[in-house]
């Protein structure tokens, strides 16, 4: 079963301001994820957006908490994560920055 993002992260993200877009802006290539040994996206993302489901053999993407940092794009060994910034100012909106 999918482990939901850790409680710690939930509490952290609660204070942030998001204007969540209706569509996912993070696109992965599930076929590559099957081959991917370390799955670095699952531990490099600062908000735990990526969770591997070993039973379903699928990568679940919780895009709602994304802070649009780009780390996942850099660490994916197959360069198969596309970060298409959400339109119209949606997504994270830092109140302090």
């Amino acid at each position: 079963m999918v482990n939901p993002p850790s409680r710690k992260i939930d509490e952290r993200l609660y204070v942030n301001r998001y204007n969540v877009h209706s569509e996912n802006h993070l696109h992965v290539d599930q076929s590559k994820c099957q081959e991917c040994r370390d799955k670095p996206c699952t531990f490099s993302c600062p908000v735990d957006d990526y969770v591997w489901d070993p039973e379903l053999k699928r990568l679940t993407v919780f895009y709602e908490g994304c802070v649009e940092c780009g780390a996942c794009v850099v660490v994916c060994p197959y360069h198969k994560i596309a970060l298409d910034y959400p339109p119209a100012g949606r997504g994270v909106n830092f109140r302090f920055g």
């Binding site: 204070v15 802070v67 940092c69 780390a71 109140r95 302090f96």
Partner: peptide, 9 residues
């Protein structure tokens, strides 16, 4: 008190 959590490269 934590008011915001951020990340950037």
């Amino acid at each position: 008190r934590v008011k915001e959590y951020q990340a950037h490269l």
